[in-house]
Simulated assay, not measured.
Amino acid sequence: MNEQSKILHLTCSLSPLSFFSMGELLPLLSLLLCLSFLQGAQAATFTISNQCGYTVWPGILSNAGIAPPSTTGFALSPGQSLAVSVAAAWSGRIWGRTLCSSDYSGRFACATGDCGSGAVECSGRGAAPPATLAEFTLAGGGGGDDFYDVSLVDGYNLPMLVTPSSQAANGSCQATGCVLDLNKSCPAELQVVAAAAARAVAACKSACEAFGMAQYCCSGAYGAPSTCAPTAYSRFFKSACPRAYSYAYDDATSTFTCAAAGGGYDVVFCPSTSSLKSGGNPEAVGLPPTYSTMAFTGNAESLMTSRNSLGILLMVVSSAISTLSW
């Protein structure tokens, strides 16, 4: 650190009251410089990578009152990565958009995860469901824990893996995500079929979006953890992706912490085994291996009563889950 930086750091470390005790008011410009210095010194970085065989357009939304990063939407061709810096105490979500294009008027739109801005940049707009979401609340370098998760509460459109850039000795900072292609096994009543994908399944809705019923949305009489229990549909998502949120109150197995992440997180779309940091073994980080043959058919009633369907689902559950409790 040079002498100028040392002086600025010392000045910024003084409490506002100390300036008044001097009988002087620190100019507004100096305050802004201090804030800029401290924020820049503690910035976190998200490295967002696309390992899909097609282009993905990531979107980034900051929570209310949180400054946005320099970009809120961009394109990643297969194999590309982009490092995005955010404030140390940033909170918000990251997701991927697929099957995107511009119409004759130049308006940009996507078949899944569209943020409705009409442009590649999302500019403060969130993802239209269904979309796989990575959610973050960073501690800001104050000695606390970061909180992060991958959520399927708003449905699913892409496999996603989130891994802290550094590991902690206390066992926190674990990888999480949903590495399976659930579009191939999505129940018929939840499927989103896209003309742009030759009528193929492009995303899988949540039961809340598909049916709008309180028991699926955890609303009304079901608006508390004690009354909103897992459903057949949320269990479908949880079976395939045991570390991802499957419904609103799925906190116990789906929220992760990282003590001082040390720079940020890697967010990977369509992760391969080589993208995992535990010897290339998905199960080593608590995630199920990727199977291309997973299949599911039927409705909620058949899912709850058919042991044949359960046998198929169990093929993709992590080895730590040996049975499903109905």
Rank of each mutant, 00 (worst) to 15 (best):
E24Q: 06
S13N: 13
S30V: 07
V150C: 05
L313Q: 00
Y247T: 12
N308Q: 14
T293Q: 14
E121H: 03
S322G: 14
V153E: 01
G141E: 09
S309T: 06
Y233C: 00
V193W: 08
Y216C: 01
A75L: 12
S91A: 01
S165G: 10
V86W: 07
A67S: 13
G124Q: 09
G212V: 10
M294V: 10
L14F: 15
R97H: 04
W90H: 02
G298P: 06
N63A: 03
N308R: 10
A260S: 12
Q174L: 05
A300R: 09
P242T: 06
S272H: 10
S226I: 14
G279S: 01
L31A: 07
S123C: 11
I48E: 11
T305K: 15
F236Y: 13
V193L: 11
I60E: 04
T112L: 02
A248F: 13
M213D: 10
Q167A: 12
F211R: 05
Y148G: 03
S151F: 08
V285T: 07
D103I: 09
L76M: 08
L303H: 13
Y156W: 04
L182K: 12
C218Y: 04
L26S: 08
L133F: 04
A89K: 14
L38S: 11
L190C: 06
G53T: 11
T231D: 00
T255Y: 07
A229N: 07
G286Q: 04
D145Y: 15
F136K: 06
P27Y: 11
A127P: 12
P69V: 09
L324S: 12
R107W: 13
A109M: 09
C52L: 01
T323G: 13
P69C: 09
C241M: 08
T45G: 01
E135Y: 07
Q174Y: 03
C258V: 08
C208K: 10
T176R: 05
G223N: 14
V268W: 04
G143F: 00
T98D: 02
E301Q: 03
L190F: 13
P187Y: 08
N299F: 01
R93H: 05
P164V: 06
C122H: 09
F136I: 07
G141T: 04
A111T: 00
C204M: 11
A194I: 14
D103C: 00
S226F: 15
A261C: 02
I66F: 13
D145K: 13
V268G: 11
R107K: 02
T132F: 09
S13C: 15
G279C: 00
L26Y: 02
G106T: 07
V150Q: 10
G92D: 03
T98N: 11
D251V: 08
Q4H: 15
Y247W: 08
A221L: 09
A197Q: 10
A198G: 02
A244M: 01
V153G: 01
C115H: 02
S226N: 08
S85H: 04
A284D: 13
L82S: 02
T72R: 01
C178G: 07
A168H: 03
